[in-house]
Design a protein around this nucleic acid. Structure first.
Length: 796
DNA sequence: CAAACGACTTAGAACGCCGCAT
DNA sequence: ATGCGGCGTTCTAAGTCGTTTG
């Protein structure tokens, strides 16, 4: 009755096998020939990783790091006038409306921010605050005397939005180019104000209650719901920025929600060891349960997983248990596994009412713990539940997979909130590890996880100001790169010929990061994580050089595991200089050696920083992704197309980006079947159309001879029907194409993290495609700032 | 300096729900 | 009513990058 069967599940690993039969529209430049195969990767390398980071790299310069750190952070350009909310130049009353709060300042930073505050000097209420007064003001307008430097109270600060202000700050530090830009924005500010209807509000979309929408006879209850409607949205993007480094002025929340306590198994559910029933004590039983729940998962067929699990499980056992249970393969978890399966079935089969009840309770929990009040605004928290205990599911060949992820106790949780606010209460009989009032960070709670010793956080949802502002800033940085990228390219091309090895390596790495959108590639601690690499950490074994391949000269083939152990496989024709350099870098090295032995991400980013303030490796990914989308949209969108066809074009453009960034997904298991089904449907539709056509002709003939009015209307109806059918057919065909092209590519990640949403918003407006076809509700919430500020003329 | 730490973004998988075809 | 596929949501691992520490 052994359970542990190391062979039962064959293969299947994290990375998606993939066949490169690539799809249509690819961006010309990138990835002309990417194709992934299902072969086992990385069988080599195991022993060879003798990293030779030789001493030479240490000698490199480090000169300029003590630069103007002040300037660097928040600054970002804002040259495009269209996208900037225009709310300046109005007379404003000093705001009392936003909660005056206490600022907790670490001394030197505090000086910094205060200084900044006093530099600026018009004294304005941000538009958004006024428009929003209704929402929060009353409860927050406490005029309580503030003890410590509440920034809202500080006179000064103009109300330029984030980027304009950053620009200004930059300008004050001079540099002619920026001052030009500044004039720009000033002009805009002076000319613009009247056309900006100041009280315009964004209505929050109310969660569409599908049932209500459909059923005409909505129950009274539902109607009430429907009428409630329209909350206002905080237009934080029109607000003045906080002092540099300050993330909030006031923050209050209820703390995290802990995982439910463990419930013992019923006595009837038994665990067997070596065929004999063994009653486990609570601790060991719980951990056994974690494993039992995963019996059908691939993980349990992996040796490392089992080894790690068993080691950690034994740590939870009593003395006796430990003495008895010494061999995992003699453990029989099946009853436990079946029990949990049954439980989840039970949950699925609950009645409507029961489900409703659970939902209600869940909602109540979310209402209470799912939000915080930050600077007077209620904002959603992203993850307010503390991660429950379980077995660690590392990806790829993770050396720690299967280890026990321990239950988090309040005693290990740090709370962060403002001082003047009620501290969240720890669960009965417990206390927090610490309560912090650090407004230089964005997190509400944190704890240290036991597998890697990493810190985990509770932070805000993507639609929050804190996240949105950063996101906006990210895209502005990418746009700024756009303005200098040609210079940078010329620069690194020049450096390919440098006498210094480290410069040449840096230049080649930059070329890859730029052309292939590779990640930076930090070093990782060996044995702590799966063996994956990025640009700077590429090893000789990851690159193959072909003087000629498939009719192309100087081809470099990349084959490595990147983030999440997703395989990157690409054959790229590269410039001769790059090729020669690569040969040189790889010469006389073993497979496990670093290609770029004189380079790491820190050196690289320092260099990038010198080329453009704020530039880092990842900016190239954002830039190239957004640029690709913009270019592809321009190229693929056909003005005469129907909305459906336009959306297909959009998806193709999106797909080009996903390919560039190597965003993969597992091909759905039932993909082939589904595809067949679709073909079937299309065939049927075609048949119906044929029939309809026949009918139509017949009718036409009859009408011509008889001139009967009744026939005439029948004829018209037939015609309409035919048109409908053809449209349906087209839709089906579009769907099928889309599906096929999309089978192994994940669009979501790029859409969410790499594509400047203003591009999509502008595109939708320009071509009158409903935005809902591109962004679902959550995405629209996340990109509210972009939706509000971009018009159809926006260009990345 | 380099290693460790901390905070934050990016990532695919898992989960859960809902509507549709059968 | 049932099962299934698609989709949105949640989850948390795995990156990046700056700062701190030794």
């Amino acid at each position: 009755m052994t359970l542990i069967d190391a062979n039962s599940k064959s293969s299947s690993s994290t990375q998606k096998p993939k066949d490169g039969s690539s799809s249509s529209s690819k961006p010309k430049d990138h990835h002309s020939s990417k194709s992934n195969t299902a072969s086992k990767h990385r069988e080599h390398s195991s022993s060879s990783s003798s990293k030779h980071k030789d001493g030479s790299k240490s000698s490199s310069h480090k000169d300029s790091n003590s630069k103007n750190k002040d300037a660097k952070k928040s600054s970002s350009s804002h040259k495009n006038e269209n996208d900037r909310p225009n709310n300046a130049g109005e007379v404003k009353v000093k705001s009392e409306s936003v909660s005056p709060t206490k600022l907790v300042i670490k001394t030197e930073d505090g000086r910094k921010s205060i200084k900044k505050e006093t530099e600026d000097s018009d004294d304005d209420i941000p538009l958004a605050q006024r428009t929003n007064v209704t929402v929060k003001v009353e409860e927050d307008s406490d005029s309580s005397p503030t003890k410590k430097r509440p920034h809202r109270d500080v006179d000064s600060e103009d109300d330029e939005p984030l980027f304009a202000r950053a620009q200004k700050a930059k300008k004050q530090k001079t540099s002619s180019t920026t001052s030009v830009k500044k004039e720009h924005s000033d002009k805009k500010r002076k000319t613009g104000p009247d056309d900006d209807e100041p009280l315009k509000k964004i209505k929050k979309e109310v969660k569409p209650d599908k049932k209500t929408a459909k059923k005409t006879d909505g129950s009274p209850k539902k109607r009430v719901k429907k009428e409630k409607v329209e909350e206002e949205v905080w237009k934080w993007w029109e607000e003045k920025p906080l002092p540099e480094g300050v993330k909030w002025m006031s923050l209050s929340h209820k703390g995290p929600v802990f995982a439910p306590e463990y419930e013992r198994l019923p006595k009837s559910v038994k665990f067997y060891y070596d065929g004999k029933h063994v009653q486990l004590e609570e601790a060991a039983e719980e951990v056994a349960g974690f494993y039992a729940k995963m019996l059908e998962h691939d993980y349990t067929s992996k040796e490392i997983f089992n080894k790690n699990f068993f080691r950690d499980w034994r740590k939870e056992m009593t003395h006796d248990e430990k003495a008895l249970i010494t061999d995992l393969s003699k453990c029989d978890f099946r009853e436990i596994g079946a029990y949990y399966k049954m439980k989840s079935e039970e949950r699925k089969n609950m009645t409507k009412a029961e489900k409703e009840e659970i939902k209600k309770q869940n909602q109540a929990l979310t209402d209470e713990y799912g939000f915080c009040i930050i600077d007077g605004h209620k904002q959603k928290i992203g993850n307010f539940r503390i991660e429950p205990p379980g077995l660690f599911r590392g990806r790829g060949d993770h050396p720690k997979q299967g280890m026990l992820k321990k239950r988090i106790q309040p005693e290990t949780v740090i709370i962060n909130c403002s001082k003047d606010v009620e501290t969240p209460k720890p669960p009965e009989g417990h206390r927090w590890k610490q309560v912090l009032h650090d407004n230089k960070v964005t997190w509400l709670c944190s704890w240290t996880e036991n597998i890697q010793g990493a810190i985990k956080y509770i932070m805000l949802n993507a639609n929050s100001r804190l996240k949105g502002e950063k996101d906006w800033q990210k895209y502005e940085m990418a746009r700024q790169l756009k303005t200098v990228v040609e210079k940078i390219r010329a620069n690194y091309r020049e450096d390919w010929r440098s006498k210094e090895m480290r410069i040449r390596q840096r230049a080649v790495a930059m070329y890859f990061i730029d052309k292939l959108a590779l990640r930076a590639g930090n070093e990782k601690e060996e044995g702590e994580t799966a063996d994956t690499v990025g640009c700077c950490s590429l090893r000789v074994e990851h690159i193959k050089l072909y003087p000629e391949l498939n009719g192309k000269e100087f081809v470099a083939e990349f084959d490595f595991l990147g983030k999440d152990s997703i395989r990157y496989l690409n054959q790229v024709p590269v410039e001769k200089r790059v090729y020669k350099n690569l040969q040189l870098f790889m010469d006389n090295k073993s497979p496990g050696d670093d290609v770029f032995d004189r380079l790491n991400t820190s050196i690289l980013n320092k260099h990038l920083q010198e080329l453009m303030e704020g530039l880092t490796a990842k900016v190239f990914r954002t830039f190239n992704a957004s640029k690709t989308l913009q270019d592809q949209l321009n190229e693929l969108t056909n003005p005469d197309d129907s909305v459906t066809a336009k959306i297909l074009s959009y998806n193709r453009a999106n797909r080009a980006v996903a390919v560039l960034c190597n965003h993969q997904r597992a091909i759905p298991k039932t993909f082939d079947k589904q595809m067949l089904n679709m073909q079937e449907k299309i065939k049927k539709k075609n048949d119906t159309i044929k029939d309809a056509k026949k009918d139509y002709k017949k009718l036409k003939g009859e009408y011509k001879s008889s001139r009967d009015d009744r026939l005439k209307s029948a004829l018209e109806r037939k015609k309409k029907q035919l048109e409908r059918l053809e449209e349906q057919l087209m839709k089906l065909e579009v769907q099928a194409t889309d599906k096929e092209e999309n089978k192994d590519i994940a669009l979501g990640t790029s859409k969410l993290n790499y594509l400047d949403p203003r591009i999509s918003v502008a595109w939708c407006k320009k071509w009158e495609v409903p935005l809902e076809k591109i962004y679902n509700r959550t995405q629209r919430e996340k990109f509210q700032w972009a939706i509000d500020m971009a018009d159809e003329t926006y260009e990345f």
